[in-house]
Amino acid sequence: MAKHGKRYVEIAKLVDRTREYTPREAMELAVQTARAKFDETVEVALKLGVDPRHADQQVRGTVVLPEGTGKAVRVAVFAKGEKAREAEQAGADVVGAEELVAEVQNGRIDFDVAIATPDMMGLVGRLGRILGPRGLMPNPKAGTVTMEVAKAVREFKAGKVEFRTSREAGVHVPIGKVSFGPERLLNNFRALMDAVVRARPAAAKGQYLRRVAISTTMGPGIKVSPQSVTEWLAGEG
């Protein structure tokens, strides 16, 4: 078992590990327990009632966080001609075709999101072994294979994030920085949870939201009641 420092131990005492909090209580507690000297990231961890081994139970999608992520996102676009120009005008950090593919193959990956036009996927497909493990491979379901490259660039720059289930049916998504404060973080949390709930597969049976937790980079996990999240989204909590 990992040993934690005195600071973490003291902070952890503020969190009741035996109870599940409401979204507001959890977010306020997350901000309260963030004591690092840097602006910690707030992350949401979910356990969903799906079996990702079956294609019809995989959960994947994107959502634009209304308050942004608090992080400067570097966007690369694989495109040619007019679409490449559109991407540059929209603020893409890296734009290219064959030369950009060659750079990635040589180990140069200085971007957080990769977008590609459909006609480029023959080339980009060669990068699957490199970009795939990093979660950077363009995919239509994530909105990163599109002809609307300018729109995609602006959305990711503004705070669009992707969510998808792991092999264990878990989902982990950053929703902002501690400096946002509880209200702005709650706005992002609502947007994320709305999107995840809407993405529920028809084949999923039983309870969909199994476990919900919020944590900061250096802070303890704070359990959130799945029922309270459902009620909150419905305007009942």
Score class of each variant (00 low, 15 high):
residue 194 D to H: 10
residue 174 P to C: 08
residue 44 V to G: 02
residue 62 T to N: 13
residue 220 P to S: 14
residue 130 I to S: 01
residue 152 A to M: 11
residue 200 R to Y: 09
residue 200 R to P: 03
residue 203 A to H: 00
residue 184 R to V: 05
residue 197 V to D: 05
residue 124 V to S: 07
residue 195 A to S: 14
residue 179 S to N: 11
residue 189 F to K: 01
residue 150 A to Y: 06
residue 220 P to Q: 12
residue 178 V to Y: 05
residue 187 N to G: 14
residue 112 D to V: 02
residue 92 A to N: 12
residue 135 G to P: 09
residue 85 R to H: 04
residue 147 M to L: 13
residue 224 V to S: 03
residue 126 R to W: 14
residue 235 G to K: 05
residue 197 V to C: 10
residue 69 T to C: 07
residue 128 G to M: 02
residue 97 A to T: 03
residue 54 H to S: 03
residue 187 N to P: 04
residue 30 A to K: 02
residue 149 V to I: 13
residue 111 F to K: 12
residue 101 V to G: 06
residue 32 Q to L: 14
residue 228 S to H: 12
residue 231 E to T: 01
residue 232 W to T: 01
residue 88 E to A: 12
residue 206 G to S: 09
residue 236 E to Y: 10
residue 90 A to S: 12
residue 87 A to R: 04
residue 25 E to Y: 11
residue 39 D to F: 09
residue 12 A to F: 00
residue 85 R to S: 07
residue 87 A to F: 00
residue 170 G to M: 11
residue 228 S to T: 13
residue 230 T to G: 00
residue 179 S to Q: 10
residue 70 G to F: 09
residue 163 F to T: 10
residue 211 R to V: 03
residue 174 P to S: 11
residue 62 T to K: 06
residue 225 S to D: 15
residue 125 G to F: 11
residue 211 R to A: 12
residue 135 G to Y: 02
residue 193 M to V: 10
residue 162 E to S: 06
residue 78 F to D: 04
residue 60 R to N: 06
residue 214 I to A: 04
residue 69 T to R: 02
residue 115 I to P: 08
residue 89 Q to N: 06
residue 21 Y to M: 12
residue 230 T to C: 01
residue 50 V to I: 13
residue 31 V to H: 06
residue 127 L to M: 08
residue 117 T to H: 03
residue 157 K to W: 01
residue 39 D to T: 05
residue 185 L to G: 03
residue 91 G to D: 07
residue 86 E to S: 10
residue 36 A to D: 14
residue 47 K to T: 10
residue 213 A to Y: 05
residue 113 V to L: 08
residue 197 V to E: 11
residue 91 G to C: 08
residue 211 R to K: 14
residue 144 T to W: 00
residue 30 A to E: 06
residue 149 V to K: 08
residue 105 Q to N: 12
residue 80 K to N: 03
residue 128 G to N: 02
residue 5 G to K: 07
residue 203 A to P: 00
residue 52 P to D: 04
residue 228 S to M: 10
residue 114 A to W: 00
residue 231 E to I: 02
residue 163 F to N: 08
residue 146 T to L: 12
residue 187 N to Q: 15
residue 43 E to Q: 11
residue 221 G to Y: 03
residue 223 K to Y: 02
residue 66 P to I: 06
residue 22 T to C: 10
residue 83 K to P: 01
residue 57 Q to I: 01
residue 166 S to H: 04
residue 197 V to I: 14
residue 175 I to Q: 03
residue 108 R to E: 15
residue 102 A to K: 15
residue 176 G to K: 01
residue 116 A to Y: 01
residue 108 R to P: 05
residue 20 E to R: 15
residue 118 P to F: 02
residue 201 P to D: 00
residue 123 L to F: 14
